[in-house]
Design a protein around this nucleic acid. Sequence first.
DNA 1: TTTGCTTCTGAACCCGGTTCATTTATTGTG
DNA 2: CACAATAAATGAACCGGGTTCAGAAGCAAA
Lengths: 260, 260
Amino acid sequence: MAGLREDKKRRTRQAIGDVAMRLFAERGFEAVTVNEIAEAAGVAKVTLFKYFPSKESLVLHAVEEDLAGVVIARPPGRSPLRALREYLLAFAAAPIGEADELIARMKVIVDSPALTAAVNRLQYGSRRALARALLPGGRPLMPCETGEGSSAPREAGDETPPRSDAAGDGTSPRSDAAPGAAGHHPQPARAPGADPAALAAELAAAQISAAVLTLQETFFQRVAAGMPPAEAGRLLRGDVDLAFDLLENGLAWLGEKGTT
Amino acid sequence: MAGLREDKKRRTRQAIGDVAMRLFAERGFEAVTVNEIAEAAGVAKVTLFKYFPSKESLVLHAVEEDLAGVVIARPPGRSPLRALREYLLAFAAAPIGEADELIARMKVIVDSPALTAAVNRLQYGSRRALARALLPGGRPLMPCETGEGSSAPREAGDETPPRSDAAGDGTSPRSDAAPGAAGHHPQPARAPGADPAALAAELAAAQISAAVLTLQETFFQRVAAGMPPAEAGRLLRGDVDLAFDLLENGLAWLGEKGTT
DNA sequence: TTTGCTTCTGAACCCGGTTCATTTATTGTG
DNA sequence: CACAATAAATGAACCGGGTTCAGAAGCAAA
């Protein structure tokens, strides 16, 4: 039960990740080869790829938003948008541990086109999940009872750093599959039928997801540029409110001048 | 001037693209290697890569939305959202030539995770351009004085065609760059300063862009599933209206029942 | 210790993409 | 027409991410 073996595995994984981040921070993501990382970590390349499914995952294994989970787990009576807004506000207010390591990671991400693209890809995946969560699909989506305005003050320090990842770190390398026959998407690719509710959910998910990604990017860039995380968090709170006001109230103001 | 050479080049490019699409349609994107394509087209691999910057670009060289251009070129007095809506409605209404070839292309794209990811990447690029276009440019964004409605500056299509896409079809392969020194992003990565107007533009662009991508995907999937393009276009018109109504009026309805 | 399992390893391989020196057209000029 | 100058095509070697495979440790229970 002790899992002496498990322990060694955990430490190996940690070691690989650490040395990789160190090299990336020193020389940039694209300038470090996986061979170097493996050698520096004292393992074979093939071993490295058993612990991390791709080079990208060495950086992104922790970066993951599970918006769908937030929506699904929201307390009854709360609208999805409000749940998401509060989730992000809580994230912005949470003290960020290990700032240095985090800053380095963000710097590496922001400085690498390949990695920002990978972040985008991750977001695309979570978007599909969010769309399903928004659909009154499976179970009771909205009790409609509209709890009273704004009480329910959100248990202060409850954790919820992004920690909620379902299946390990995304960023899988080979999606290869059978060529001849049918499609082979992660998601079954929603039926092309003309269900306006499904499309509405998909559109809403896309908008929300894109907005959250933009917030995340802005935050990353600020931190990567050297702003202390606490300060960046403070700014992020304002940004979250702006973003969700836009989401809720729409962009009709676009084209008029005084936007505030 | 005749450009006998140019002509040959054009035909070679066409031939490569054609044979590639044929192979992709037969066996799927990932199951065909560039070596095969080159051999089947009767050229060397290196020649293929002189005509197309990447394997993906063999499929995506035509797929490109320039939303920023639509916004910039809109007639005076028209809001960006309205211009975009009309642009998409026009696209939906336009008769689509060469349906068969188009269907095959969409099938290939929809069936390949790598290609859908690439489409996403393209969209990400155009999103930045759209954000810039939504910002009333270097100059006065919100003088707060609210000039009457629309007379604003904006000499129609004069200089500063911010020429979004720099080099032909996107999907370039090597973004490599110097490791040690500063960043090297395509876009200078907007300043992390806290300009709410810039952020609002970025958020609006993200939402719009995501919505358009969703529309595009839906359309693609319908066509790839065998729906005649004319029919898909008709459905697309309704979808466009739904999407832009959502964009303009917001998602506040989320969580209430009767969506419609 | 022996048996059985998991993990690790090295080496070869695939594929997308690039470099480079060389060959093969095409073009413009005397 | 011949002849350079120029542009394009070629093959072969190379790089880096990622996989496969046979076999060599390492650990656990007997």
